[in-house]
Design a protein around this nucleic acid. Structure first.
Lengths: 331, 331
DNA sequence: ATGCACAATGTAACCGGTTACATATCTTGT
DNA sequence: ACAAGATATGTAACCGGTTACATTGTGCAT
């Protein structure tokens, strides 16, 4: 393989001159520059990035820990990360962890091992040693309450409250909820927003209308089948993501219920399918790609040792998108 | 940062002994091994992977070029790649190219630059210099006819033929098709399978029933709205992927048509949503994750210089999944 | 006791860039 | 004409592992 020494020999200069010609052309004389560049061309020389990385102790790789890439919302966030990263000359090492904490710890070690310069964690779990109090990490989407790093997230509580108020305005009083995994702070926050709205409207929450789910289509389907069996059926169901909402709608329709005439359904995330299901889904839209952009920006800032502190937070905006899956309550 | 020399000093041995203790413990005496291991522990020593990679000239990174990560089928393939790669100690560098050939060429250079050991390309495009006749690459899913590398793919022609025969058996004679992007060999092959089945049944193909699409929900919706305006409306529509089928169904229902009573719709891929749309979609299921596993296996074989040749091919199995979106033709 | 095989460990070259420092050459002001 | 500074280029150390080769030590056969 052609290396810098061979090129130097061909051009009749020293290795330092070759290196300088490629990195800061302005400090070598035009004549030598010409000689070196033709030699580079002739030899088809490409600097060995591994040597560069080794020397500079920077990989220009970012590790991204994602619970499931199969989730369309995460897929969009990753697109955003990828886009921002390559704009800044970073590559993305994707790690589909399926929530396996041991695997996440392993991937986080890639930073200690110098396979990557930093980590973007999309789940509320700290894969670093507790002792390390300032890991090179940014936590996005599902954030920890006490993350020792910058955070990018949605005000899930406020968003859930807005959606609940929308349902209340349509006259719904018995509202079911299909929740995410128990340990997810997303679930806790969205639940809290739901409670806030009910409390403000002086409505008592019927705990039997809270159903667990895990953000998959299947779990939404199963949860809906449970909810419609309750003694007094809810007139609306608020699902913590769109996949579960779509699963729920399918179940309701199979049971002969009309959406939204007999029962309203709301989702969360505004994935592409939300607009194309039947009926199109009322949901909360989030700027998924921007979560990715912002996470990368914070991580790069953190690595630069700039003014990004571990307390830094970015709260992203949301929007209530009303489509046809929610309607005025019938009596 | 603690390096091997510091550990050697702490343990009172040479750097070679430390290296050997960690790489082939059996060739150092138990006594020294003990000393070295405690020193490693004490110092919290982690070998600098960049140095290791530099020395060995192997990165243990694989580049994956994917047209859109937002496509649920590709998301599953990537899951499979990731899984197989990490089983073999490789990390995945994900590159969401959006079909930008310039970007793909740039990512392919990561191999020449030693940022990665090989490439998995999920699109029918050769990002390497034509001159390089054996790039370290495997082409999967959308494969080139003349790829200079191993291939993993479905017999799309046969699968499309099977689906078309299913529609013919249900009595359909006027069948529309929503195609993928013109330049995709997937489209060409599925079209060919479609033609094969019609020809075998002695049915002439009405070219006006072929509609272009681009594998997105939106394009399926638009194409369907065009198809139902044709003078003599088709009784079935075969879509080249599930996203377009779901978009099409939504359009048909909005126009007051019942699926499958008025018009049947078939998809391709069997994504998770296919089972949960209304009506559940008849489609072709592909072992998406296995495409990923197989692609990694071939790539590793290619890198080992084993018996994997550039002519090697793996044809993956498919299955017709009949659900409720296709039905007997009404008259 | 001598020689030989083999095991355990040490020494130092090497991978391929980058860059601090040294050296040589050319300007410019007095 | 000469000092001082600027400009251009070369030399070699360095990053942190790995490993060929050298060295030393140990056991065993003769």
């Amino acid at each position: 393989m052609t290396n810098i020494r061979k090129v130097a020999e061909m051009a009749g200069v020293s290795v330092a001159t070759v290196s300088r010609t490629l990195k800061s052309p302005d400090i070598v004389s035009p004549g030598t520059r010409e000689k070196v560049l033709t030699a580079v061309e002739l030899a088809g020389y490409r600097p060995n990035l591994m040597a560069v990385q080794f020397r500079s102790q920077k990989t220009r790789n970012l590790v991204v820990l994602v619970p499931t890439i199969a989730n369309t919302f995460f897929a969009r966030v990753i697109s955003g990360i990828q886009e921002a990263a390559s704009q800044h000359g970073y590559a993305v090492l994707l790690c589909n962890t399926l929530g396996d904490e041991q695997a996440e710890r392993g991937y986080a070690e890639m930073v200690a091992n110098r396979q990557a310069d930093g980590v973007i964690q999309l789940r509320a779990f700290n894969p670093f040693d507790e002792a390390a109090d300032s890991p090179i990490m940014v936590n996005a989407c599902e954030v920890m309450d006490d993350a020792p790093c910058p955070r990018v997230y949605l005000d899930n509580r406020a968003a859930a409250r807005v959606m609940t108020e929308h349902l209340l305005e349509l006259g719904h009083r018995r509202i079911g909820m299909i929740k995410g995994p128990r340990q997810s702070p997303l679930t806790r926050d969205r639940m809290q927003g739901f409670r806030d709205a009910l409390a403000a409207a002086n409505i008592e929450l019927d705990e039997s209308l809270l159903c667990p789910g895990d953000f998959t289509l299947e779990s939404g389907y199963r949860a809906a089948s449970v909810l419609i069996e309750t003694r007094e059926r809810p007139t609306a169901i608020f699902c913590e993501n769109d996949e579960m909402a779509i699963g729920a709608i399918q179940c309701l329709k199979e049971q002969g219920l009309r959406v939204p005439d007999d029962i309203s359904v709301a989702g969360f995330d505004d994935i592409a399918f939300a607009r194309y299901c039947d009926p199109p889904l009322t949901t909360i839209s989030q700027p998924a790609e921007d979560f990715g952009h912002e996470a990368v920006a914070l991580l790069l800032g953190l690595m630069d040792g700039g003014d990004i502190q571990r307390e830094t937070r970015r709260v992203m905006p949301f929007k209530l998108v009303v489509r046809d899956s929610t309607g005025r309550v019938q009596r």
